[in-house]
Each structure stands twice: as structure tokens, then as C-alpha cells.
């Protein structure tokens, strides 16, 4: 593949000072090019710094050495072109589903849109995650899966260049998780977003991704292997069950996580 890098992570280190002159090197020399419209997942054991990479791309954390470029622009601070779907959804509990999305749309796109356009825009994304019936409900009144769908709708509604997802389905039961994965794949086919997903779920990584980035264990974690998933879209989890390429990818990740970089204290 020869497409130019859209999101470039260039020799990035992340070092946390521990006080008393000591420091913890979380990431060492991370190097990754992500193409436009690509879905990439980053997988690794806990403590491998995978969430740290996401925070660096989001700009929520500062880079110690190296650079991250999005369309040749240096990332130095958070911004709406890099929307984040947080693991615990982070909806504002005093706003309804509609208002949570409206607040983001108003802030990011508000200057270009009339009130009726804002309304239509918000409804388009509520519709995309099939939550029309719950638009006036408060986060405390809906299930965990529905909250995460609102979180995804909010992130997409501001039309980001990159969608960053930090273990987005980690807190959900497996049936709800499957449902949301299907939602995400369908939506990404429609919108063509570039997506970076942090996960620790092998099946999720293979099902969703064009490439799976496997992280070595920390400290000084870095990218161990990169796996291309050559499966056509749309993907169907039922059909993939016995698909050779699916099983090959799955096997390669399990081999990496539980043999090459096994971690026994988990």
C-alpha cells in the first residue's frame, strides 16, 4: 500500500516523571503511519501504554520526544478534529441524549449552521446510532450500550478527521459489545472515518481492523508487530467464524500476546 500517511506517529517516546529524579519510560520509539479511512486497532496487555498512545494522538497528554502529525500538522493540544470516544462514555449527565450531541455540534460547527441545520445535523447522528426513541432521555435512564452509542454519535457529529476510541466497548457485556461493533462497522462504511481503536479483545481487533498493531509489554513498550487483516467489507461475524484469513489473524495475535509477549501477572 502506498497511500501517503494521514496520521504519522514519528519516533515518539513518553516518559512520566516519578519524583525524586526517577522516571518511568512508558513508550519508546513508537513509529506508525496510519492511512486515511483506515481502521487500526492497537492491542496489548494492560500496562503496555496503548491508552497512552491514544492520549498522545488526542493531545490530552504531552509527547516527551518525537512528533505526531495529522495531515502534516503537529499535534500539541486536544482538538475536535480528533474526537475521542471514552471508555466510560463521559456523557454529561445533566443533558439529554439530544443535548449532549447538540452541545458538541453547537461548539464545533455552530458558526456555520442555522438553528434548523443544527437540529437536522444532531438528528442525523442520533439516527445513525438508532436512538431516535431515546433522544430526550438522560444518560442515567439508558443502558450502558446505549450510552456508548451516544458517545460515538457525539464524537462523529463534530465531523472529526480521526475517531479515537479508548477501549470503547470494554465495559459492556459481550452481546451488547457485538451489537456495537456491528454499528461501528456500518457507520464507518457510511462515513469513511479514520479510526484508531484501543482494545484488549482479540476477536474485536480482527473483526474491526484493517491493521492490528501489537504492542510489547512496558516499561519501554513499543510496537512489536503489525498485522494486515485482508478481509473484505462488509464483514459478517457469522461468516468469518470459519474463514481462513480470520483464523490466521486471530492465531497470529494470540501467538504474539500469549507466547512471544506473555504476561503472567494478569
Amino acid at each position: 500500500m502506498s497511500a501517503k500517511p494521514f496520521l504519522k506517529i514519528d519516533h515518539v517516546d513518553k516518559i512520566f516523571p516519578l519524583g525524586g529524579g526517577k522516571e518511568y519510560v512508558a513508550l519508546r520509539d513508537v513509529q506508525l503511519d496510519i492511512r486515511e479511512n483506515e481502521i487500526v486497532s492497537i492491542i496489548g496487555h494492560s500496562g503496555c501504554g496503548k491508552s497512552t498512545i491514544l492520549n498522545l494522538i488526542a493531545g490530552l497528554d504531552t509527547i516527551s520526544n518525537g512528533t505526531i502529525l495529522l495531515e502534516d500538522q503537529h499535534i500539541t493540544a486536544p482538538g475536535p478534529e480528533r474526537a475521542v470516544v471514552f471508555q466510560n462514555h463521559s456523557l454529561l449527565p445533566w443533558l439529554s441524549v439530544y443535548q449532549n450531541i447538540e452541545m458538541a455540534v453547537r461548539k464545533v460547527l455552530g458558526e456555520d449552521l442555522s438553528p434548523s441545520e443544527i437540529r437536522d445535523h444532531v438528528m442525523k447522528y442520533i439516527d445513525m446510532v438508532n436512538l431516535d426513541h431515546a433522544k430526550d432521555k438522560y444518560p442515567g435512564e439508558i443502558s450502558g450500550g446505549m450510552k456508548q452509542r451516544v458517545g460515538i454519535a457525539r464524537a462523529l457529529s463534530i465531523e472529526p478527521k480521526v475517531l479515537l476510541m479508548d477501549e470503547p466497548f470494554g465495559a459492556l457485556d459481550s452481546l451488547t459489545r457485538a451489537n456495537l461493533q456491528d454499528h461501528l462497522m456500518r457507520i464507518q462504511m457510511q462515513t469513511g472515518n479514520t479510526v484508531v481503536i484501543i482494545t484488549h479483545d482479540v476477536d474485536e481487533a480482527v473483526l474491526l481492523s484493517d491493521r492490528v498493531i501489537m504492542m510489547t509489554n512496558g516499561p519501554e513498550a513499543t510496537i512489536g508487530e503489525i498485522l494486515e487483516v485482508n478481509l473484505p467489507r462488509p464483514r459478517n461475524r457469522l461468516e468469518l467464524q470459519h474463514n481462513e484469513e480470520y483464523l490466521r489473524c486471530r492465531g497470529a495475535i494470540i501467538e504474539f500476546l500469549y507466547s512471544k509477549f506473555a504476561k503472567d501477572d494478569e
Binding site: A58, P78, V84, V108
Partner: peptide
């Protein structure tokens, strides 16, 4: 105020 809400504010550049 939870750190998560403040992160939402940062991403939206409030």
C-alpha cells in the same frame, strides 16, 4: 468535577 468531563471540554476546545 470528573476528569472525563474536563477532557470532553478540552477536546471540544471550550
Amino acid at each position: 468535577v470528573s476528569e472525563d468531563y474536563l477532557n470532553v471540554a478540552r477536546v471540544l476546545q471550550l
